[in-house]
């Protein structure tokens, strides 16, 4: 009985002190917002000379890159920490260092992301990679195009067979503008959806442990083993390999 009474006393004391502290904190925040405090989330826009190579590496921020009517590279982002920009020998490198970072009570960070607007030209190399953020590219042209994520999804529009696409568990959605050579897509546990050109001739090899293959375009599907599929379509000049562990493949 004494213990229950002690618990009741502790409950009342702790709750009262806690409520007072929360009230004081809310009042302090109200005063700070009256004085113009707008939170510690950063929203910035930076401009750079057009590089030959663009490399973007983020841990959690989604990356979107596209062409725009500009003669300079415009990078606008919202995030918890400033991005690190490095310009060296024609290469623009954008990295996110958010080690030992924590976000508390901040709905604004849900909007975090990098948006890159590039001048129209064929670059030597464009590499976009993110750990948990998504990667979106719209009709980018480069001699070497690299896209990679660990768990982030990819949305790649207007790519061709020169692109390197690799993810561990993110979903891949890719629209091909052309396909004239061999290519391999690694997707791990993520599903792969590919929109191929209509006049395509393709030899497809799909290696998977437990994924499934779905397509309305192919008349015949040859299954090597459980889960694996090989498809020859329309003469088959070029080979597309898709490797997944449990991810499904859809081709339209």
């Amino acid at each position: 009985m004494k213990r229950i009474r002690l618990l009741k006393i502790l409950c009342v004391v702790f709750c009262t002190v806690g409520a007072v502290l929360i009230g004081a904190g809310i009042f302090m925040q109200y005063r700070a917002s009256q004085n113009g405090y707008a939170g510690s989330v950063i929203s910035e826009t930076a401009e750079f000379e057009t590089p030959r190579e663009l490399v973007v590496i983020t841990t959690s921020m989604p990356v979107t890159a596209e062409y725009g009517d500009t003669d300079r590279v415009i990078v606008s982002y919202t995030g918890s920490l400033p991005l690190i920009f490095t310009e060296d020998k024609g290469m623009l490198r954008i990295t996110q260092n958010d080690t030992f970072t924590m976000t508390l009570f901040s709905p604004k960070t849900a909007e975090s992301g990098i948006h890159i607007t590039l001048p129209h030209k064929v670059y030597e190399r464009i590499s976009l990679s993110s750990s948990s953020g998504s990667v979106t590219s719209d009709c980018l042209m480069a001699d070497t195009l690299e896209f990679s994520t660990k768990s982030g999804d990819m949305r790649l529009l207007g790519i061709d067979e020169r692109a390197s696409v690799r993810t561990e568990s993110g979903n891949v959605y890719a629209e091909f503008s052309s396909f004239s050579s061999d290519m391999t897509v690694y997707a791990g546990a993520g599903d792969v959806t590919l929109l191929m050109p209509d006049e395509l001739s393709l030899y497809l090899e799909f290696f998977t442990e437990s994924g499934t293959f779905t397509s309305e375009r192919f008349d015949e599907t040859y299954y090597h083993e459980y889960g694996d599929a090989a498809v020859i379509y329309n003469g088959a000049k070029h080979k597309l390999r898709v490797n997944t562990s449990s991810g499904d493949l859809y081709i339209y």
């Binding site: 002190v17 806690g18 409520a19 007072v20 502290l21 929360i22 009230g23 004081a24 904190g25 809310i26 302090m28 925040q29 700070a32 405090y37 939170g39 510690s40 989330v41 918890s80 920490l81 958010d98 030992f100 970072t101 924590m102 976000t103 508390l104 009570f105 901040s106 709905p107 604004k108 960070t109």
Partner: peptide
């Protein structure tokens, strides 16, 4: 640690202690 928040750091300390 870098803590990002829409709440000022002093107020955040009070609120988190209160919670």
């Amino acid at each position: 640690l870098t803590v990002t928040s829409d709440i000022q750091s002093g107020a955040l300390l009070l609120i988190s202690a209160g919670v």
